[in-house]
Computed example of a mutant assay.
Amino acid sequence: MRNDPRVFSLPRWRPIRWLTDAGPDVPQEIRAALIRSLYGTLPIFAGGVLNTLAVSTLVAYRMPRPEFLLWCALEYTICLARFVVLIVAQRAAGERRRTPTDLYILLGLAWAGSVGYGTFISLVSGDWVVATLACLSAAAMVGGISFRNFGAPRLAGAMIVLTLGSCCLAAPFTGEPLLLITFLQIPFYLASMSVAGFRLNKMLIATMRAERESAFRAMHDSHTGLRNRAGLAEVIAVRSHGLAALLYLDLDGFKAVNDTHGHGIGDRLLQAVADRLRAGTRAGDVVARLGGDEFVIVTDLLAPAALTAFSATLMGEISAPYDLGLEHPVTIGVSIGIALAPEHGTDLDSLLGAADAALYEAKALGKSRVTLAAPRKVA
């Protein structure tokens, strides 16, 4: 599910939100993935739909009474509506537009209710063939509901009640006292499936949290929370065909602070620098830490004057004193080398190489300076 680029909208209607609620403190990304799982795929959808359409059609053919013809018409109408909404939702999700999630879930409930209605009228019809077909269809549908919708256990429970609850309602009208046992069977079945659904949902969320945290650690620096080299490479790869600037920052005076006051103070200083870089960059900028006291910023600012002004602002922010709990505030500086894409390359190594050369020049000129990489030589 994590590799599916489509984004399905979260429900907006309060009852639907309650039915699909993933629980407290669940990240938005995981909530979206759980909603995506409720849509399933066209083959899964077709399997369930063909079952109920075939059964309702055969039953209506065997017993062409108004109530069975109504059931058949309901099945075709609801399934067609669900198919259309599913196609619309999948296209909208692929284009990152709002999807009709509330309507899709509401139609799913209507489908379960239609199957329940068919089961009721089949049981009270007195025709054991019709009753058997309807009950087998309902049982098959409940199996699919339980398997596919454990991402929303309340929704699964509601659909099971709508589908099999009719067995309890029909039992007193069948003339078979033995069927009254359904008043025990169905509630116990619903309870057991609900418990299983909530447990599976809990396990699924825990697994998705672990995957999310693992992916974050793979792409981010554990100390500052900024992107690491792998995360930076991912950003550069995405922007490889666009225009961007890479600023390579190296702190001036950090080693002296670290050697004098210890690694604990040095780590706190790095975290403080990272916080200032986050605050000093724009929404579309990307900040990364390569290790030690080296940081990188990727920005779409390209004009030399704009880059110089941006760098000067960053240098001013980083050079301001840091209160790290020592007797006196700590002050450091920063030198910056700048490379441009695609002028100096489109991959991370090329851009870092050009920016590092510019950074070396800035250091040689007396530190706390900014230097733009020289144009690449054409062979």
Rank of each mutant, 00 (worst) to 15 (best):
L19C: 09
A170S: 03
Q90R: 07
R31H: 05
C167M: 14
V238C: 12
G94F: 07
D356N: 02
I297D: 05
A152R: 00
T313L: 12
F147T: 13
V85P: 01
V298L: 07
G165L: 08
P100E: 00
E211Q: 15
G333H: 02
A303V: 13
R209Y: 13
S137Q: 01
L359D: 07
G116S: 04
R229N: 06
C79V: 10
A134M: 01
A362M: 07
E327Y: 08
T77P: 09
G118P: 01
L324C: 00
I44E: 13
S368H: 14
G291P: 04
A93Q: 01
A112R: 04
N51R: 09
R82S: 08
A233H: 05
R209M: 14
V85C: 09
V59S: 06
A170F: 10
N3L: 14
D356P: 07
D293F: 09
I236S: 09
A134F: 07
V129Q: 02
L190G: 07
V286H: 08
A362I: 04
G284C: 04
I186R: 02
L169E: 07
L136H: 03
D323Q: 11
F150T: 05
G108F: 11
Y104R: 00
F310P: 06
L372V: 12
L324W: 05
T77S: 15
N149G: 01
E213S: 11
A138Y: 04
D349K: 05
W18D: 12
A306I: 09
N3S: 15
S125P: 05
L69D: 08
V85R: 01
E95H: 10
S37K: 10
A206T: 13
V235M: 03
N149C: 11
I121T: 07
H261D: 12
G266P: 01
I30H: 01
G116D: 04
D221P: 08
Q271W: 02
M193K: 08
G284T: 08
L169Q: 06
T331E: 15
